[in-house]
């Protein structure tokens, strides 16, 4: 046999490699052991704890957690109008931020994907991602400076006789801050989605008589919906769960603030139950998103 002499005495490593080569499942197990262990313990484990906690209660007198099953927390959440209002308000904010991000992100993503030269595209990609390099807290505090009574925004609007939303009860400022914070998460998937549309499809539409608007409505938009939904998963769920920006920008309460308050009181079981509200909304949202093909676009 040709070359037999070279291979007649394989080393231990070579034999091990050969054995692994024949046992794909063992290889996979070795590959995934660490990340799976981490996910199950740290991630699913804490979720289960959260879930179990939500059905416990706090003794009002001693302040200790009573580890007995009770649906009281959920009854409180669903019957007390405070929580219903806050949930609806948070949901409304998440929807508004998502829509605003989509409207702003689309032209930018379109320009990046279809018009800009490769050089400009690279620069824009960096520019879009760059805000993500800065700390979230720094950005939120910066917005406090912008929005405050003697801040940049009022200084700019003053000659026009206008005033900004300020840092009081108004949620408009928070809407601006969220839109700013999450915009990159909308631009990037949208850019990827637009870039994936073959140029020939746009040419075909024009060739068949479709002007710009027709091509946009009938070809580009339907094809980019999955990417749009993918981006909205980020903007929506990030808005839903955030509590720092609301506490910095406005005095109005959002779900995140309430959860945080109950950590401080502390009523951890109630905080856990409250945490399940945005979680449930996001799960529902993801189910819808999956139907719209968003996961293929990620």
């Amino acid at each position: 046999m040709i070359g037999a002499t070279d291979r007649s005495t394989p080393g231990t490593m070579r034999r091990l490699a050969g054995w692994l080569d024949r046992h794909a499942r063992v290889r996979l197990a070795m590959l995934l052991a660490a990340p799976m262990g981490w996910l199950v313990l740290a991630y699913l484990g804490s979720l289960v704890l959260l879930f179990v906690n939500a059905f416990w209660s706090r003794d009002a007198f001693t302040g200790l957690v009573e580890r007995q099953f009770t649906p009281d927390n959920f009854i409180e959440i669903f019957t007390n109008p405070l929580y219903r209002n806050v949930t609806l308000r948070t949901f409304g904010m998440a929807v508004a931020v998502t829509l605003t991000c989509a409207v702003i992100a689309f032209p930018i993503a379109y320009y990046m994907a279809r018009v800009a030269s490769p050089r400009t595209r690279g620069l824009l990609a960096v520019a879009v991602v760059m805000p993500l390099w800065a700390s979230y807290l720094v950005k939120a505090y910066t917005w406090r400076l912008i929005l405050s009574n003697d801040g940049v925004l009022n200084w700019l609007l003053e000659p026009l006789g206008l005033r900004g939303p300020g840092l009081g009860e108004s949620v408009v400022g928070l809407w601006l801050v969220f839109t700013y914070l999450w915009l990159p998460y909308m631009i990037l998937p949208l850019y990827a989605g637009l870039e994936r549309i073959p140029h020939s499809l746009l040419e075909a539409s024009a060739d068949l008589g479709g002007r710009g608007w027709t091509t946009f409505r009938r070809v580009i938009l339907p094809l980019v919906v999955p990417a749009l939904v993918a981006g909205s998963i980020f903007t929506f769920s990030l808005t839903l769960g955030d509590y720092i920006a609301p506490s910095l920008i406005t005095t109005t309460q959002f779900i995140g603030n309430l959860i945080f308050l109950n950590f401080g009181v502390p009523d951890l079981p109630f905080a856990a139950a409250l945490s399940l509200v945005p979680l449930a909304i996001v799960v529902l949202y993801l189910l819808v998103a999956r139907r719209l093909g968003a996961f293929e676009a990620l």
Binding site: P198, S205, A206, L208, L223
Partner: peptide, 29 residues
């Protein structure tokens, strides 16, 4: 522009609209 010319093109990669049925593709123009 292409949409103001009385010509039509058969593309090398066909350029069929993937989100439309065959009928909708043909009916597009």
């Amino acid at each position: 522009p292409p949409f103001d010319r009385d010509v039509n093109t058969v593309f090398q990669d066909y350029a069929l609209f993937p989100h439309m049925t065959v009928g909708d593709n043909v009916a597009y123009g």
